[in-house]
């Protein structure tokens, strides 16, 4: 289990996104930079502080999560979709690696991309706003757990999808609304009760809340619950992805 062949797929996944850095690394840095400038600098002075933290700093954990979730998901989903479409996934399916190993190697590849993207945005936050990370270890745990969960979701969609559209549908119709409604730009305490309750069932809210606790030391709700939810999603998606790979669902005939 998890022998050299497994790590070669991980290496392949990382090399792939490094090679495509203009599509895989730069866009989230640029869009996060724009969010920081437009929302933080332009609007921040009018909003003031939230929970004793400058608004510009308050939004950074949400922007980091945005830069973790989408790239982690897109990495594994696009990579698998492309390998399926051009049939070079067969080169991997015929090797002595199990479905579990193959799916985990794709998940790790996506996780690395998610964490690297998140780290870039943290760095950008530091240079543009002086943002400081309170707890590096917990921050890393959040970045990697959430990236793992969404890389797992990417594997599932990559296996399931029959066209590129399906992959973008998930990003545009599910992840983006959930991220924006997950309290990136506001504290849920600022919302009316109905929307506050609505936010509580959004898993992305908990993930952002947890990272905000890890970096800034503030949270709307329990940080332990945030960590628990992130871990449950990571386990759920990666288990389902591995199960699908092992069964050869839509990959083997």
């Amino acid at each position: 289990m998890f022998n050299r062949g497994f790590w070669v797929i991980v290496k392949r996944e990382v090399k792939r996104f490094m090679f495509l850095y203009k599509q895989t690394l730069l866009p989230s840095v640029i869009s996060s930079g724009l969010y920081i400038i437009v929302f933080g600098a332009a609007m921040g002075s009018r909003i003031g502080e939230i929970k004793g933290v400058e608004y510009i700093h308050f939004i950074i954990p949400g922007l980091v999560m945005m830069s973790v979730i989408n790239p982690a998901y897109q990495n594994s989903s696009s990579s698998i979709m492309q390998a399926k479409f051009l049939r070079f996934i067969e080169d991997i399916l015929i090797t002595p690696l199990s479905g579990l190993e193959i799916s985990l190697s794709y998940i790790i590849g996506g996780t690395v991309r998610g964490v690297v993207n998140g780290a870039f945005v943290l760095l950008l936050g530091y240079f543009l706003t002086g943002f400081q990370v309170g707890n590096w270890l917990l921050t890393f745990v959040y970045l990697s757990t959430v990236a793992w969960a969404f890389a797992g979701a990417g594997v599932i969609v990559g296996i399931y999808a029959k066209s590129w559209d399906s992959i973008m549908v998930i990003t545009n119709f599910f992840f983006m609304p959930l991220i924006f409604l997950g309290g990136v730009f506001y504290s849920i305490e600022m919302l009316p009760e109905f929307w506050r309750n609505f936010s509580m069932v959004n898993p992305l809210y908990w993930m952002i809340n947890g990272l905000r606790y890890a970096t800034l030391g503030i949270a709307d709700t329990s940080h332990e619950l945030s960590l628990g939810i992130s871990i449950i999603f990571a386990i759920f998606f990666s288990t389902l992805a591995s199960f699908m790979f092992s069964k050869g669902y839509r990959i083997k005939t």
Binding site: G5, V8, L86, E90, D91, I92, T95
Partner: peptide, 26 residues
Amino acid sequence: LSPQELNFDVFFSIGELLELQAGYYG
């Protein structure tokens, strides 16, 4: 296995392709 339909990992050179394939086998 050499499948009938040509299938190449598009991101890599011929040398890298073969190195990866050998790597998958350990």
